[in-house]
Design a protein around this nucleic acid. Structure first.
Lengths: 242, 242
DNA sequence: CGACTTCCTCAACGGACGCTCAATTCGTAC
DNA sequence: GTACGAATTGAGCGTCCGTTGAGGAAGTCG
């Protein structure tokens, strides 16, 4: 029952010691995972792009850069579960790694079956992570009735004529149209759309942008869920029509 | 910055050793969690119903029953993250606990700050973009005869037509429909649905909301258990059908 | 390098919605 | 018949949302 739907989960192992690397990949492969290994933190980004892992095992004691830096970088750009391996058992290191975004911290030397079990637990939680990230995966154009959202061109047309959206308005619309009928709280929208800026904005900002967006794409497309947040409702005109 | 919007996460500690119990609850409380402690596995279900924890810490070495049995039972009925504590360091125990549904396994004696860090990791809110779509995990739509409860959209339809529910009414319905035929006292419903506001509301408020909910989803679905509370009874139309 | 434009942020306010609770009526158990 | 618990109603009041406008940052053009 490891892999519900045919496809094996992919695990990327970032580990400089060749023997540990071999043990890990062999263990995981025997357990039904697809694996890929790199030796340095510098190679990780490319490997992630090529391999699209569902989970990453990261050795903190890499030769080329601080493991904590690698960890932070990975966490900023990616959402897959991240299991940290380390030779250091200090509490400080453990806490730091976990707070930087690691989902688990395993001290070397590790127990083989336990490590595999921990990997499986991390892959069990979020059942099917949304894979369509890398270029080819997701559709670059979302359509809803007479509203067309072109992600690549960052352009929106309504009834055939272009709609001028600002950057934030567009990001907001993309987020909404990517999960139709899903209710988002203002906090969630802040986290998703205002991700870049370090300082936390007020939730009033979200309210105001929703207001602007409504004026431009039609008031009825974004419905207010009082006490909770907002939801993007696709135009379900008369289903009989077409 | 712990949680997005004000509300403290609740942690239930199931641990027989009083001193460990005290250390744990004190640690967590100092870190901003609400805590509740019980001493045996047998007390756990009632504590969960009353306290509605967001995470449970479970000592495997309980006096009254096998920790593994408790673990399995909890996992069957609940979805909250579950951190296992144990004095036993054998790999077999670790693997077994993880495969039975534990989300983490910490060996005693534990490091205080690490344990808190691990609790926080398990409670870390999944980024909005990772939200499980309809499908696995927790079903995002509950159906009962002609009543459909869409959790993501926070929308309810009865016989195909939409029902307008307020925020509290919806939360209440979700809680009920998540545990059909389970009787809840008004106090339990307050703890589960009215969790945000620090001051305890009157139980009369629950009565009144049940009343409103009945008007909207059908009187017969919510049964009064006199002297105790309420229970959600699914439409057991003709069992012969289907 | 400076003026202009665009857009982001947030505070302020009016209005509406819904939460809360008290008071009264109803039903049931003893 | 009486007493206790639940149902129902209604009104006060707090909270949340929509809207507007001003201040300010960032980018653009001359």
């Amino acid at each position: 029952m490891t892999t519900a739907s045919g496809e094996a989960d992919r695990v990327l192992v970032v580990e400089d010691d060749p023997s540990v690397q071999r043990v890990l990949t062999e263990l995981l492969r025997r357990d039904g995972f697809e694996t890929c290994g790199v030796r340095t933190g510098g190679e990780a980004p490319a490997a992630i792009a090529d391999f699209s892992p569902d989970l990453v095992i990261l050795d903190l004691g890499l030769p080329d850069m601080s493991g904590f830096d690698v960890l932070r970088d990975l966490r900023v750009h990616h959402e897959f579960p991240l299991v940290v391996l380390s030779g250091r058992a200090d509490e400080t290191d453990r806490v730091l790694a976990l707070e930087l975004g690691a989902d688990d911290y395993v001290v070397k030397p590790f127990l083989n079956r336990e490590l595999v079990a921990r990997v499986r637990v991390r892959l069990r939680r979020p059942p099917a992570s949304t894979r369509p990230r890398a270029g080819a995966g997701g559709p670059s154009v979302a359509v809803d009735g007479d509203l067309v959202v072109d992600h690549d061109a960052r352009e929106v047309t309504l009834e055939g004529s272009a709609v001028e959206l600002t950057a934030k308005e567009f990001d907001l619309l993309v987020h909404f149209s990517g999960s139709p009928r899903q209710v988002f709280t203002r906090g969630q929208l802040l986290a998703a759309v205002w991700r870049s800026s370090g300082d936390w904005q007020t939730e009033a900002t979200v309210t105001e942008h929703v207001h602007r967006l409504r004026q431009k794409v039609g008031r009825e497309r974004i419905v207010t869920v009082r006490g909770v947040g907002y939801r993007f409702d696709p135009r379900t005109t008369s289903p009989t029509t077409a």
